[in-house]
Simulated scan of single mutants.
Amino acid sequence: MGTWGSGNFESDTAADHLSVVTARLVSEVAEAMAGDPVGLEPDEYWGTAVPCNLELLHLIAAQGHVGAELPKAAVVEAWKRTFMAVWERSIDDLEPSQDFKERRRALLLETFDRVAAVARERAGRPGAAPAW
Rank of each mutant, 00 (worst) to 15 (best):
G35A: 12
G35V: 08
G35F: 04
D36T: 07
D36I: 07
D36Y: 04
D36S: 10
P37T: 09
V38M: 07
G39D: 14
L40I: 13
E41R: 14
P42F: 03
E44T: 03
E44S: 11
Y45T: 14
W46R: 12
W46N: 15
W46E: 15
W46H: 14
W46L: 02
G47C: 04
G47F: 02
T48Q: 10
T48W: 08
T48G: 12
A49E: 15
A49Y: 07
A49N: 13
V50A: 04
V50W: 02
V50H: 00
P51Y: 00
P51G: 02
C52K: 06
C52V: 14
L56V: 14
L56S: 11
L57R: 00
L57N: 02
H58L: 05
I60C: 00
I60E: 01
I60Y: 09
A61K: 06
A62K: 13
A62P: 01
A62Q: 11
A62W: 02
Q63H: 12
Q63V: 12
Q63N: 07
G64Y: 09
V66A: 13
V66S: 10
A68L: 09
A68Q: 05
E69N: 07
L70H: 05
K72E: 15
K72G: 14
A74I: 11
V75A: 09
V75F: 02
E77S: 10
A78L: 04
A78C: 01
A78D: 15
W79R: 07
T82K: 13
T82C: 05
T82D: 09
F83L: 09
F83G: 10
F83C: 03
F83E: 01
M84Y: 04
A85F: 00
A85N: 11
A85G: 12
A85M: 05
A85W: 02
E88V: 13
E88N: 09
R89T: 15
R89L: 08
R89P: 05
S90R: 10
I91W: 04
I91G: 05
D92H: 07
D92Q: 05
D92G: 03
D92T: 01
D92F: 01
L94V: 09
L94T: 11
L94P: 00
P96F: 05
K101Q: 09
K101T: 06
K101N: 07
R103Y: 08
R103H: 13
R103A: 07
R104L: 10
R105Y: 12
R105I: 06
R105P: 02
R105D: 08
A106Y: 05
